[in-house]
Design a protein around this nucleic acid. Structure first.
Length: 550
RNA sequence: GGCCCGUUGGUCAAGCGGUUAAGACAUCGCCCUUUCACGGCGGAGACAUGGGUUCGAUUCCCGUACGGGUCACCA
């Protein structure tokens, strides 16, 4: 029995790799075009780190005139989650990340280099495993989990490097006849890569993000085909990225330490490895310590979290882009109206160590983005958001769209637009006082500021209502009248006057208008009171003022 | 523990042999002749640490500490 014999025994009906090498032609792309991919496992919804990675992958492919594709890595049946592919595609779509190839919805794939789902590529992997078997670079291993545990324990005791390698790799030296015998007897086995690496030698790797990295050569005989017949990640990566002509593998840096292995596998086939770029992990702070954002513990790990909060996708994207290339912020300031696509992204400008995900900063980015939307756009976004997360709000807005838009239009569209909405979930609270049911059902315990004596307040409001209020006044007129009112009641007409002679007055025009503001909105911090009153309209105003005139 | 990688203000970060060590978020103060927000101006706040190399190190080298990653028939 020789290598070829074992190969044929294990895979009698498998094609030669030359078939696939023929089938998948080189891509005909212009010089420098990058072929990149996002390759998640369908184990649930997209992780913020996954989004980060796909934004970068997409960007690089796009700006070089290349291809970005979506490949599903579903070789672990145990962890698979139903409908996850659809979820992934849709999440990416929300962020405007549309793959050029691969899955474009839950089940449809496009492109000439598929299938783009690993579970559908079984025969391909087998062909490549068979090839390795034939050339003596792989072998069947019959060790059970118990055997492996046993080996590990012995290694721990003798302080040897753990793993399946060298003298510990007993199946590596098994006579082929014996292996054939076991296979014929139906014994379970996996296929391992026969590593020729020597950890005393170093391999140098130039990572597009991390720069020069040196590792000992890999000497582990890792499993390439599991006993269920599916490949491990490492092996699938080699075969898929080779066949799909990936030029740049841009992935999380948890993979950095497998680079020696991957390069070795490419070499075993005589394939040219792609370029690698390893992205630093997104971290969060907890109890003063940094740690990886975890899907299980942290709600913000899930991309859906931002959706629920009503943070626009554009904001999340721009924030992430800023973490990736910190010059993005400056570019954005210089080009407030340009599309993200025009920003020139550079891998080598990425930070090598993990950044803390700063939600406060994200909200600031979001605030700025929202401030540029028109009232109509805001209305539409809020309707979209609330139809999923706040139905009563949706009904309220739709009941009187015109009124809602007037509210959103307050201090908007100016050179210095108001920036008080950071996320759609802020909106309800933000506009509540513009609606009577909220207003009258809200708390009655609200503070007037400087002027807080009930009788004085009553006097001011009554006089205002009877003598100085006219909904048809323009802004200047309106304010002049409040000044007149202030003067009539003995308050300073101008703030400056008051500051000059603070002893002469009890309060100033600002304090008087605060009384009106609080009476009309039950809060101190509101946008321009004149605009608010214009939107509220005469009836609502009179009714609210009347509360104080009894 | 082995092997990798990293450590510039509270956070994200530029700088990479000679700089008053940028900028943004957050924070504080003042101003914008009504609050808040916006905007403007200003303040406070940093090169983990010990050794080298050098005329000179935040920048280069070595060690230490701390942080992260990885060592599966998971990806």
């Amino acid at each position: 029995m020789d290598n070829e014999g074992i190969a044929n025994l294990i895979f009698p009906d498998v094609k030669d790799i030359s078939y696939y090498e023929e089938l998948y032609k080189d891509r005909n792309l212009k010089e420098g075009a990058v072929v990149s991919r996002f390759a998640p496992s369908p184990t649930g919804f997209v992780h913020i780190g996954g989004l980060f990675s796909s934004i970068i992958n997409k960007k690089i492919a796009e700006q070089t005139g290349g291809i970005f594709y979506l490949r599903i890595e579903d070789t672990d049946k145990k962890r698979e989650v139903e409908n996850a592919v659809e979820g992934i595609v849709n999440s990416l779509k929300d962020f405007d990340i549309i793959p050029d190839e691969g899955f474009i919805d839950g089940e449809t794939e496009k492109g000439d280099y598929g299938p783009y789902m690993q579970s559908k590529r079984g025969d391909i992997y087998k062909a490549y495993v068979k090839h390795l078997l034939k050339i003596g670079s792989a072998y069947p291993c019959f060790c059970s989990t118990e055997d492996l545990d046993d080996i590990r324990k012995k290694q721990e005791l003798s302080k040897n490097m753990p793993g399946y390698y060298g003298e510990w790799a007993k199946c590596r030296r098994m006579p082929l006849d014996m292996a054939a015998e076991k296979i014929k007897n139906g014994e379970k086995f996996v296929i391992r890569f026969k590593s020729m690496g020597n950890p005393d030698r170093k391999i140098k790797h130039h990572d597009l993000i991390k720069g020069k990295v040196e590792f000992p050569e890999n000497n582990q005989d890792i499993v390439i085909l599991k006993s269920d017949g599916l490949p491990t990640y490492h092996f699938a990566h080699i075969v898929d990225d080779h066949l799909m002509k990936t030029t740049h593998v841009i992935r999380g840096d948890e993979w950095l330490s497998s680079v020696p292995l991957h390069i070795q596998l490419f070499q075993a086939f005589g394939f040219r490895p792609p370029k690698y770029a390893h992205i630093a992990t997104l971290l969060k702070e907890e109890n003063g310590k940094k740690r990886k954002i975890s899907k299980r513990k942290d709600p913000e790990a899930k991309v859906s979290y931002y959706h629920e909060q009503g943070i626009p996708c554009q904001a999340v994207k721009e924030y992430l882009l800023n973490i990736a290339n910190s010059n993005f912020e400056g570019w954005r300031r210089a080009n407030p109206d340009k599309k993200i696509e025009e920003f020139k992204f550079e891998l080598n400008k990425m930070g090598v160590s993990g950044a803390l995900f700063d939600i406060v900063k994200l909200l600031d980015v979001s605030k700025n983005i929202i401030s540029k939307y028109s009232a109509e756009e805001i209305y539409n976004y809020v309707i979209e958001w609330s139809s999923k997360y706040n139905l009563p709000l949706k009904e309220r807005l739709e009941n009187d769209k015109e009124y809602a838009i007037k509210i959103f239009n307050i201090e908007r569209g100016l050179k210095k637009p108001r920036k008080d909405i950071a996320k759609w979930s802020d909106v309800e609270e933000n506009i509540s006082y513009m609606y009577d049911d909220y207003f009258y059902n809200g708390k009655d315990e609200y503070e007037f500021q400087k002027i807080n004596d009930k009788e004085t307040i009553r006097k001011i409001i009554k006089l205002y209502k009877e003598k100085y209020f006219d909904i048809n006044d323009d802004k200047q007129m309106w304010f002049d009248r409040i000044k007149d009112l202030s003067e009539e009641l003995g308050y300073a007409r101008e703030v400056k006057e008051y500051k000059k002679e603070p002893d002469k007055y009890f309060a100033h025009v600002g304090d008087v208008s605060t009384v009106l503001r609080v009476a009309l909105t039950k809060r101190h911090n509101t946008p321009d009171l004149y605009e608010i009153m214009q939107v509220l309209g005469e009836d609502r105003i009179i009714k609210r003022l009347d509360l104080f005139c009894k």
